[in-house]
Simulated assay, not measured.
Amino acid sequence: MGAPLRKLSGDPECKNGTCPTLWGTDDGNDYVVQGYVINDPEQAVQLDRLVSLSRLPNVTVVVVPLAGRMPDFPMTCFSLHDDRLVIVETFHSEITTRDPRDVQTYVDTFHRFAGVSLSDSLG
């Protein structure tokens, strides 16, 4: 018998218990994703990559639900590297900036999305 699972995230608006939910063990060694079946091999590879990244100590993966109001329109991808560096991926290029005003813009954007995520630990 394995370690007991605890609910890590899920949609609080879910009415019938069939919505995607993430479960994990307290030791962080095992995860269970309850939800929709992924039949597309590319999506399975992407999910595997997310799971791998989520195990890194400086990476947090949360769910932002499709339903509901988004705080911004996500036009680009970006990654924050502490409070001194942000890398922004646009449609045609990658921009690296250390300008404190630029970095703060993306820190604020991150917090707006974290605020609507299904995680209790961000926001």
Rank of each mutant, 00 (worst) to 15 (best):
Gly17Asp: 06
Asp26Tyr: 07
Val51Phe: 11
Pro57Thr: 09
Thr76Ala: 12
Ala3Gly: 11
Phe91Gln: 10
Leu47Trp: 07
Gly68Val: 05
Gln104Thr: 08
Asp120Thr: 03
Val64Pro: 01
Tyr36Asp: 10
Asn39Cys: 13
Leu80Gly: 07
Ser117Glu: 04
Leu66Asn: 10
Pro100Gly: 05
Leu85Thr: 15
Val103Pro: 00
Arg55Asn: 10
Phe110Tyr: 14
Pro100Thr: 09
Cys14Trp: 00
Asp27Asn: 08
Ser93Gly: 09
Gly2Arg: 08
Leu118Met: 07
Gly2Cys: 06
Pro57Phe: 03
Leu53Gln: 09
Cys77Gly: 11
Glu42His: 11
Tyr106Gly: 06
Leu80Glu: 07
Gln43Met: 15
Leu47Val: 11
Val103Lys: 04
Ser9Cys: 05
Ala67Tyr: 07
Glu13His: 03
Gly68Ser: 05
Gly24Cys: 02
Glu42Gln: 11
Gln43Lys: 14
Phe73Arg: 12
Lys7Val: 00
Leu5Ala: 01
Glu94Trp: 14
Arg84Ile: 07
Val32Ser: 08
Val61Leu: 04
Ser54Arg: 06
His92Ala: 12
Cys77Ser: 15
Asp83Ser: 10
Lys7Ala: 00
Leu56Asp: 09
Arg6Phe: 11
Ala114Arg: 00
Ile38Arg: 12
Leu5Tyr: 05
Val103Ala: 03
His92Phe: 12
Pro41Thr: 08
Glu94Lys: 12
Cys19Met: 02
Leu53Trp: 13
Tyr36Met: 11
Asp48Ser: 15
Phe78Val: 04
Ser117Leu: 03
Asn58Ser: 15
Asn58His: 10
Pro65Lys: 00
Met70Trp: 15
Pro74Val: 02
Ala114Val: 02
Thr76Leu: 10
Leu50Trp: 08
Gly2Phe: 03
Asp102Met: 11
Ser121Lys: 11
Met1Gly: 10
Val103Arg: 05
His81Asn: 15
Arg84Pro: 00
Arg55Cys: 07
Tyr31Cys: 04
Pro57Val: 01
Gly115Trp: 05
Asp99Val: 08
Arg55Asp: 08
Trp23Ala: 01
Leu50Asp: 12
Glu89Arg: 07
Gly24Pro: 02
Asn58Tyr: 15
Tyr31Phe: 10
Thr90Glu: 14
Ile38Tyr: 09
Asp26Val: 09
Gly123Tyr: 09
Val45Met: 14
Gln34Trp: 05
Tyr36His: 12
Asn16Thr: 12
Gly17Tyr: 03
Met75Glu: 15
Met75Tyr: 13
Thr21Lys: 05
Gln43Ser: 15
Pro57Arg: 04
Val63Leu: 01
Glu13Trp: 01
Val45Arg: 14
Tyr31Ile: 04
Val116Ile: 04
Arg112Gln: 03
Leu5Arg: 02
Met75Asn: 15
Thr109Cys: 09
